[in-house]
Write a protein that binds this DNA or RNA. Structure first.
Lengths: 226, 226
DNA sequence: AAGTCATTTAACGATTTCTTAATACTACGA
DNA sequence: TCGTAGTATTAAGAAATCGTTAAATGACTT
């Protein structure tokens, strides 16, 4: 199952959140649908049969938990995954939510990278998609959940930026990532850092993991490959 | 679907941007149309039915988002892709763009290489275009993503210019590329290098890949053929 | 407040890649 | 056969790009 085939329905009454999530998920290649209330969500879900529904807990009228219950009652949606969006403070929903049939929680405020990997995680768990399952290439295993890279079984913990850079490179082994692409995805499109910064991080990775995993394509970028 | 068949409409009130984008996209072989305001854009879009519209968000009178909405209301343009051009600073979570039906965002300032690959990405995602599929002719496979040429299964890595030259020749097997054409597409229309430079690169390619792939047509140019 | 760690920058060196220039070669027509 | 036009070859210098180090910054800890 490819990302392109995956439909995600986002339900939230705040327009900012809808757009933010929508943008980031579309950018990853998912098919994204949105709506801003529970009733519409149920109708839309029946119609498009998304694999995953991101559901805000706090909504006027029909709240997330009740919406979730009703979706769970739909036989045609039995395979649909539901993840709740919650503010950090509201942890009461934790209990009520799982009861209603939620598969995961995502806390606001939501950071793009976290969102993406979380969603990949949810989808992987239930669809046995290998979208970005823990890569395992040439003795290197990247565990996105634990934030650790295993080199021939030995855990190597990496700081955030190094980990994210490694994660990006390993997300498509062999593919050459342009420096611009790396900056955009690891640092974020709006952050401006010098080109040498990437080099330094690459160097640290090579130092910790060995020289043979990351290849330089001069004038183009870097790739993870054997 | 070939690049030559793809029409792109660029809408921006700044003339510099129009020219910059237009130049770079034409160079890639797309059919490019421009206009500098929203109203005209809608009319032009109905007329030429472009596959992709690049739309500046910030425009006087009819802004990008409103223009997008109106285009989305046109039944005859239902398959048209819309990508917004935004300044780095305008945080995407604040933009009402996706709601209006945008398919992607491209941040200014725009770098040519990023633009090109981004657009190829957008088009590929939605048109299943084979814009940069891997050529495979007579035992030679050119993998643009991995930046590698496989010769009978064995990877041969090429420096940037050599790779781009090879990619160009392989993009239309059999077609003779004039020296002028090669300079324009590989080096860029504004770069001035001597004619011998091409020869040298051709020689390096023949050295690495074998003598039988690239043929010289005296007084005309080179072609990739068996 | 001192210390640690992650991140970024700056400076310089090292390397690769690109370009040129000079010369050799080849095919073809006079 | 000679001359010409165009391409091939080679080596060497120039330019671009990357690697490396050390040091500055800033957040967080002790």
């Amino acid at each position: 199952m490819n990302k392109e085939d995956i439909k995600i329905l986002i339900v939230d009454d705040e327009n900012d959140i809808l757009e933010f999530l929508s943008y980031n998920l579309k950018r990853e290649g998912y098919q994204v649908f949105v709506c801003d209330n529970g009733r519409e969500a149920i109708a839309k879900a029946k119609d498009i049969k998304p694999q995953l529904i991101l559901l805000d807990v706090m909504m006027p009228e029909l709240d997330g938990i009740e919406t979730c219950r009703q979706i769970r009652n739909e036989k045609t949606l039995s395979d649909t995954l539901i993840a709740f969006l919650t503010a950090r403070s509201e942890d009461y929903s934790q209990i009520a939510g799982f009861d209603a049939g939620a598969d995961d929680y995502i806390h606001k405020p939501i950071k793009p990278r976290v969102l993406i990997s979380r969603i990949a995680g949810v989808l992987r768990r239930f669809l046995s998609s290998d979208a970005d399952a823990n890569a395992d290439i040439g003795g290197l295993v990247l565990d996105r959940e634990k934030f650790i890279v295993f080199k021939e079984g030995n855990p190597v913990s990496l700081p955030k930026k190094e980990f994210e850079l490694m994660a990006l490179l390993m997300s498509k082994p062999g593919k050459v990532f342009l420096r611009e692409e790396i900056l955009d995805k690891v640092w974020g499109g709006d952050v401006v850092v010098g080109d040498r910064t990437i080099d330094v991080h690459i160097r640290k990775l090579r130092e910790k993991l060995g020289e043979n995993y990351i290849k330089t394509i001069k004038g183009v970028g870097y790739k993870f490959d054997l």
